[in-house]
């Protein structure tokens, strides 16, 4: 029985390898045709489009099932992104802001020695890689957390809490200066009801009975509607990404689109 199962698995594995090789073969054949027919330019641009198309298809192959081609593309993506960020940060931040000013100042200018302090704290961060000495990096993190909190908390409270409260507490104007009914007042009313109901839903000091129960149920409805709106926007966003890729594959790669 066990031998039969393992034989079946081996068969499945073989068929998957055959499918994989066949798909790669089709991709190669399509590209040969595209280059031969002049649908892809025979230069680096054409090569770039071909690689981008291959990697896009490799990533979408995950929709069928997990496979080595998908993993290969995924690792390339992560490696490229990290490599790009490191190099870009080195040339745009580390080199001009620290190394050049400290070690290679322009002729006639002095080295900015105070930069030794951030350099020192920066080097301490690398102690994270040693489990034994990781505690040293906490000095740098303490600096970052202290600075970050000091900067973010007052401004965050002012902008995200006080400003929002102020907008909610503004008097509702049902009629404009010409005496016409102001329909946005209804939206403001709904927002106020929603805020109060959701706050009551998250108020756990009293048991949700009677009017509190009704209000908290209304709060749940508001939360559900908010989740629905967020999900709808998320679907739209994900579809946009797919559409852009499909347009690239049909247009830039296969060249079957008119515009």
């Amino acid at each position: 029985m066990a031998a039969e199962v393992s034989e079946k698995k081996l068969e499945e594995k073989k068929s998957r390898v055959v499918i994989l090789v066949a798909l790669v073969g089709i991709f190669v054949a399509v590209n040969i045709y595209l280059f031969a027919a002049g649908r892809l330019p025979s230069n680096f641009e054409g090569l770039g489009i071909m690689i981008a198309a291959g990697l896009s298809l490799a990533i979408y192959s995950f929709l069928y099932r997990d496979n080595p081609i998908y993993k290969f593309a995924e690792h390339i993506y992560i490696g490229l992104s990290v490599g790009y960020i490191i190099v870009y940060n080195y040339y745009n931040a580390l080199k001009p802001n620290l190394l050049d000013k400290l070690f290679f100042p322009p002729p006639g200018e002095r080295a900015e020695l105070w930069l030794i302090v951030p350099l020192f704290f920066g080097i301490l961060m690398f102690f994270r890689f040693s489990p034994k000495h990781a505690w040293v990096s906490r000095w740098s993190f303490a600096f970052i957390v202290g600075y970050g909190s000091g900067m973010a908390i007052p401004r965050g409270v002012k902008t995200m809490i006080f400003a929002q409260m102020e907008a909610t507490l503004r008097p509702i104007e049902f009629f404009d200066m010409y005496g016409n009914f102001n329909f946005t007042a209804i939206a403001t009313l709904i927002a106020i009801v929603g805020i109060l109901a959701v706050l009551i839903y998250f108020f756990f000091s009293l048991e949700h009975k009677g009017p509190l129960k009704v209000a908290s149920r209304v709060g749940v409805w508001f939360i559900m509607i908010a989740f629905g709106a967020q999900f709808g926007y998320t679907v739209m966003a994900r579809m946009s990404l797919l559409i852009e890729r499909i347009r690239f594959l049909l247009g830039d790669w296969l060249n079957v689109l008119r515009s």
């Binding site: 902008t159 400003a163 929002q164 102020e166 907008a167 927002a191 908010a226 709106a229 967020q230 926007y233 998320t234 739209m236 966003a237 946009s240 559409i243």
Partner: peptide, 26 residues
């Protein structure tokens, strides 16, 4: 902003902290 984030920014419109907003492909 991207569609995923649009709902997070509508309160800023209401409060006047943002004067306008484009959400996603639409």
């Amino acid at each position: 902003c991207t569609g995923v984030m649009a709902t997070d920014y509508y309160p800023y419109l209401n409060s006047g902290q943002l004067s306008g907003l484009m959400g996603g492909l639409k």
